[in-house]
């Protein structure tokens, strides 16, 4: 049994290797990765185009920080399911993201279990 059943996922991270890793992880768990963005602006563009069911969002990225991407997305699409996946771990950032609507916040380094646990919660998969 895989966790996912074809749900669409957008991966946002400025590191290609992190994107690749998440890509493999999601694909192996039955999700469809519909897009990958390497910076904040690209993330907004791709989100508009693809309207993914789930988004993983890094914070420290070129052009636009993940926290801003989150703010903008939540303002426009308050029902978005977004998981923050970052190595930024100060409490205020974590609190802030959760407060403005991120479903989960996972701190790097994360492993398959941690990611899937967050995904389950974010998508209400039991």
């Amino acid at each position: 049994m895989t966790v996912g059943s074809g749900q669409s996922v957008l991966i946002v991270d400025d590191s290609p290797v992190m994107r690749q890793m998440l890509f493999k992880l999601f694909e192996s768990q039955g999700f469809t990765v519909v897009g990958q963005a390497a910076d904040g602006e690209e993330a907004l563009e791709l989100f508009e185009q693809l309207k993914p069911e789930l988004t993983t969002l890094d914070i420290v990225m070129p052009k636009l920080r993940g926290t801003e991407v989150l703010e903008r997305l939540m303002a426009k699409y308050p029902d978005s399911r977004i998981i923050m996946a970052s190595s930024v771990s100060d409490a205020r950032t974590v609190m802030h993201c959760l407060k403005i609507g991120a479903k989960q916040y996972i701190i790097k380094p994360y492993d398959e279990e941690k990611v899937m646990q967050a995904v389950r919660k974010a998508l209400d998969i039991s």
């Binding site: 400025d14 590191s15 992190m18 890793m21 420290v60 970052s86 190595s87 790097k108 380094p109």
Partner: peptide, 10 residues
């Protein structure tokens, strides 16, 4: 530096 830290931890 931040990215390097993140991916190296992974």
């Amino acid at each position: 530096m931040h990215s390097l830290k993140g991916s190296s931890k992974m």
